Amino acid sequence: MRVMVFVKATTDSEAEETPAPSAELLEAMGRYNNELVDAGILLAGDGLKPSKHGKRVAFDGASRTVIDGPFAETKELVAGYWLWQVRDMDHALEWVKRCPNPMPGPSEIEIRPLYEMSDFEATMSPEAASLHEGARSKLGN
């Protein structure tokens, strides 16, 4: 099972005036990431710059509207992510509980399972399956 693990943004992570993470936190996260790699769980992961450097695109039919950051509701923003391959949700929870606190103060990490093509078997046409498989094979997945 693949899961996306989101490190939720905080007021501090959204403020560029905040000092960079401490050497201790960077080392702890580095050790944790190495444990994930050694366990064969980590597929990808990175931190994100504050939302003021981002953009959103709102869709309404054929219309597209670009919205410049920063975005309101810091608690709904993502400051970083991991993509993991785990046995099940309990396995993912075990690993998240081992994570160092990713922020200087209170923080949250969210775990969400990814859809797999098998989730769409009932409605997947052979043409759609071929298109999706072609994209995955180009990516080496």
Rank of each mutant, 00 (worst) to 15 (best):
P113Y: 01
G61E: 10
K55A: 10
S22L: 03
C99E: 11
L36H: 03
D88V: 11
Y115M: 12
D88Q: 11
E127I: 01
S118M: 06
D68W: 01
A15S: 15
P104F: 02
V5E: 00
I41M: 15
L131H: 12
E116H: 13
E27Q: 12
E14W: 00
A44E: 11
N141K: 13
L139K: 08
S137E: 11
G54W: 05
S51T: 09
A135Q: 12
V5W: 02
I111P: 04
P21M: 01
E73D: 14
P50Y: 08
R56Q: 06
H53D: 14
I109N: 13
I111M: 02
W95R: 05
A23V: 12
W84S: 02
E121L: 01
S51P: 06
H91Q: 05
L131T: 10
P50N: 05
I67M: 14
F59M: 03
A23S: 14
T11I: 12
P19G: 08
L114Y: 06
L83M: 02
G61Q: 06
K8C: 14
L139G: 09
Y115G: 10
P50T: 08
F59D: 01
S22A: 04
D90G: 06
C99S: 14
P70G: 03
E116K: 04
H53K: 14
M103P: 00
A122T: 14
T10M: 09
D38L: 11
W82D: 14
P70N: 10
A92I: 02
A23K: 12
A9S: 08
I41Y: 13
F71G: 01
L25P: 00
E35G: 04
F59P: 01
P100V: 05
S51Q: 08
N141R: 15
A129G: 13
M89T: 15
A79I: 00
P126K: 02
A122C: 02
F71Q: 04
R98N: 01
G105I: 00
Q85F: 00
T10L: 05
K49G: 11
S51M: 07
G140I: 02
E94M: 06
T11Y: 00
T11Q: 14
P126N: 01
E116R: 05
L77C: 03
G30H: 04
V37I: 15
N101Q: 06
W84N: 11
E14K: 07
E116I: 05
L139W: 06
A129P: 00
